[in-house]
Amino acid sequence: MQLLKHKLQSWVRHKIWVWLERRQPPVSQLTLRQNILYVLPSKYGISLFALAAILYLLGSNYQNNLILLLSFLLIGLLLLAIILAFKNLHGLVLQSGETTAAFAGDMLSVQLHLANQRGRQLLEFSLNGEPQLFWTLPSEVMLQVDSSRRGFYRLPRFKIQSLYPFGLVRCWCYPALNQSYWVYPNPLQQQMQQHLPTGDGELQWSHLSPYQMGDALQRIDWKRLSRQPSQPVVKVFSQQGSELHQLVVPSLSGAALEQALSQICAQILHLSHRHLPYTLEVQGRLLTSEQLTTAQNAGGQSTVQPGLSSEELHRQRCLEALSLC
């Protein structure tokens, strides 16, 4: 019996989800309007309506107009709560924020930008059944997403609801935004020592060269910059004694693949931390730091964030390739 009920529930939920997907496909900017807002009385609203009904009977039986007035006051309050609860959500603008990324198992929050959010109270954002109550709305809202499995995901449909004011009426909606996030494989730290070069003192200062777009900010010669603001110069390090690390994703599947991906992920992190050069081969595709621009066009999904050095960009692309493989 319990099972049947559960199945029925999940079936209904699925049907509604499908219906919502058709009716309200994800968009990058969403204004909460009348056709996607739902209003129904809350449990407390129903109990107060029952009280109004009792008072109506009481007032009729006592032939007491003052009790009837009180009863109609409660009914009026309910009707008013419908309007005010609707107004509390109506007109709120949701905008998808930047694509974010995290390693599997880490906390991952997706940022939403809100506009026209002033004067709204007690809005509850819930994603995957985890509610988050805002007393007043900030201009950015962080939604925590599930990051247990690697991959490239779209932000699932979430729920915004409010019982403000009086707690009599629940107004809610299910917004879906074109907002995605990456979950990289979980970096495995254990056997790093054997596989990885220690790399200490391997970096040596070689020469200075003019700044080019994509050079790491921390390599800019800041002292010189103050003297010659129009000609930034970067320090170039030669990586003596360190050969190019070639990382290859083995053609495995299942748990073995996950294990391998985790290890490679850890290696990438280590190498990029030491500024050591590396390449990654995934399913026959070779990623090197030189062919960034061409790969960018081929990759498609990857989003380049401004202000990243070429090295960081390479790292990001490699991690994304790992997530998808």
Binding site: S42, E124, G129, P131, L133, K159, S162, G167
Partner: peptide
Amino acid sequence: MLANQASYPA
């Protein structure tokens, strides 16, 4: 669809 009751501030 009526999920858990919203939590309120104290």
